[in-house]
Design a protein around this nucleic acid. Sequence first.
DNA 1: CAGTATCCGATGCGATACTG
DNA 2: CAGTATCGCATCGGATACTG
Lengths: 238, 238
Amino acid sequence: MAESAKSYGQFCPVAVASELLTQRWTPLVLRELLAGSTHFNQLRRGVPLMSPSLLAARLRALEEAGVITRREGEGGRQSEYRLTQAGEELRPVIEQIGVWGRRWIQRGIKDEELDPALLMWDMQRRINIEALPARRVVVRFEFTDVERKFSLWWLVLEAGQADVCLADPGFPTDLWVTTTVRLMAEIWMGEVEFRRALGPDLVIAGPRSLARSLPDWLQLSVFAGVKPVPPGTPKTAR
Amino acid sequence: MAESAKSYGQFCPVAVASELLTQRWTPLVLRELLAGSTHFNQLRRGVPLMSPSLLAARLRALEEAGVITRREGEGGRQSEYRLTQAGEELRPVIEQIGVWGRRWIQRGIKDEELDPALLMWDMQRRINIEALPARRVVVRFEFTDVERKFSLWWLVLEAGQADVCLADPGFPTDLWVTTTVRLMAEIWMGEVEFRRALGPDLVIAGPRSLARSLPDWLQLSVFAGVKPVPPGTPKTAR
DNA sequence: CAGTATCCGATGCGATACTG
DNA sequence: CAGTATCGCATCGGATACTG
């Protein structure tokens, strides 16, 4: 594997940086690292379609480039990947790419992009625990548009920690959300406003206070606030 | 050819945008477009190692994505590629990539990256005509570290126009610059300060006023002002 | 759990030649 | 000049199985 991609043969910083940053999957791996993932399998959850060997290769390349450090965990078991300052300074790059994509690529969400596991993982990471009562809160999601096996998910939210599980965690459920993956994804991306989505495809059941505060603790994608440029906009700026 | 690269299978804007932006050569083509190139062969000069068929394919992809428009020239001869507003908004993305590369990738310029044609082309495009006398100015560059065939270059600078040629343009030369491609590239990248470089590897001959004002009209790379982070800097930010 | 090893298939892309 | 057509190889990376 490895052997860095062929060089562009130019010393221009755009070329040199692109040799690293534009390798396949690398921007998404960086997105995950910037979102806070530090372990191999956390990263995998964020890029489920990437093969583990390729992820390992990319992490090696990023380490070699000084973007991350790898620290052996206790007992040599699990490594911890952390962004260096160089890596942290890639945040504006990745963010800008996302903002541009949101503004200018107006194709909707494709069916094959609707992965409940990925969506739950993304949502979980954006949960604002502070906005929840200071006890354990369990939220059950039921997706009506996926096969039975992947239709039930639980979010277990307690002191400084949020977990997703596909199996009933055994704790009593506080809130029931019944919807489709598509609608939930559209809400999460800011394409549909939460309150307007309530209806046959989005039903919330449970204590009123918890339900009403949902938009506060279930924070949307970081790109949800970026409004797409309407298709009718004239193309040329100059 | 064509058939867009395989999708990442995620609706995240970073993923969607990356499918376009991280195709091989695309960031460099965008850099060229943003620098002002509008014709196929102008673009080729900026990415000389890219095959013409691939450049055509990338331009097609950028057009399809709404980043550029292609306008047929008179007589259907030459097309003109212009950035749309979407394309213009990629400027911060490409710039950030370059700034990051300059700050954090500290490898020097490799021998095989020293292409006098590309360097002259880049320099020509950054010439500040306003800072020159309002008449034609001809500058001859002699590079002492390349084969004879590519050692002599002329810059012809006149009213609103700058041209490079490898053949003597026939006009009287106003200024003679004798140096190496390496040193000139290092100066142009801001790695070496011009005045400090004067010596055996950089000799300027000609009228004093023109020679002294050279740093004003021969503007350096847009990344020359970005100072690399010294290698000794501690790695982790947090 | 946290990766590594291997293998093979698709395809991206470089080289070259050609055309209006 | 401004691209297009064709071809074939290299290599990237996906799938799968395996290991400490």
